[in-house]
Design a protein around this nucleic acid. Sequence first.
DNA 1: CGGTTACGTCAGCCATGTTGACATATCCCG
DNA 2: CGGGATATGTCAACATGGCTGACGTAACCG
Lengths: 176, 176
Amino acid sequence: MADVTARINPLFLRDEELRQGIEFLYFAYREFTKEPDTILSEQGLGRAHHRTIYFVGRQPGISVSDLLSTLRITKQSLSRVLSQLLKEDYIRQRPGLRDRRQRLLELSPKGVELERKLTENQRKLLARAYREAGAEAVEGFRKVMLNIMSEEDRAHFPAQTTPPLPGWRGTGGGAS
Amino acid sequence: MADVTARINPLFLRDEELRQGIEFLYFAYREFTKEPDTILSEQGLGRAHHRTIYFVGRQPGISVSDLLSTLRITKQSLSRVLSQLLKEDYIRQRPGLRDRRQRLLELSPKGVELERKLTENQRKLLARAYREAGAEAVEGFRKVMLNIMSEEDRAHFPAQTTPPLPGWRGTGGGAS
DNA sequence: CGGTTACGTCAGCCATGTTGACATATCCCG
DNA sequence: CGGGATATGTCAACATGGCTGACGTAACCG
């Protein structure tokens, strides 16, 4: 009986497949942020703080403007979040060496601890999903996700043919 | 040189792989919602309206409580959004036949039009990503995404061995 | 020296989530 | 039939995290 639908309307399956994809994004993202959100709210922080902590942990010494272009929010929005993280000593800043106007950001020990706790959670979720889906599926997942994201964001990831390297976003070692 | 890292610290690649996965979710989701958000704001609507319109379009005749459990938000949050959509005739409601306490929701022609416009956009983005990644990759994407989402949400999707059917969430024809 | 850049801040607005309390209509069981 | 449970709606208040606009300071650089 199921085949009848496909025979009658071959476009239907295509539409259904794409709608499922839409829902995958929604449901997976929701699950992905659920636990971290809970942990964060216990510390009086929110998802925006998570993102900031995450990317500062990812690129220690990142400048404010680089962080802004990664997050693509306004400086006023970041400011609110960043000020709190500085005040509560999750993040520390030091002036840039070459350009003393810059405030280079890095996690404090307290920030490292929280980052670990939050990311650990998402890593476990992902690791489980990867394991249950299998290596080949992970490669497919990677391909599709890279194609969904904007070209600019995609450029931050090395091609899969070579193993991923630490110098994410090309600002690897030095300041940008 | 790149291999040195892997030899020195074999766990590093694993961590890097998982961190990239985290970023895939963030960047892809951001891109996925970008265009619809723009379209919506032109109509004085937001992402929450999109979700409501989407799921009402997906399951015409859905009850408010079923919609609530799909969205997993409070009735007060939904109410604000739904009231506006009713008032501006994107969505219409009729009492349930068997249970007249229910308000069964469906899209008006205006709502269908907007839903088409919004979903069309995401479908195109996904279709392009699927096309460029290839059928095998899509299958992997599907597997990983299903494993990321909660078991409850996952249950709404038929197993991939049989072609997907319209009766999504098991409430296909009847009321739940 | 003067324009540009990096960063910060104040003030206000909006969308969307939350909790708590309460109201109404309908259903269904005993 | 009566009363508890259910489906829905509503008022009020609050938090988060986006946004715009305006303005200020310090440092860089030609």
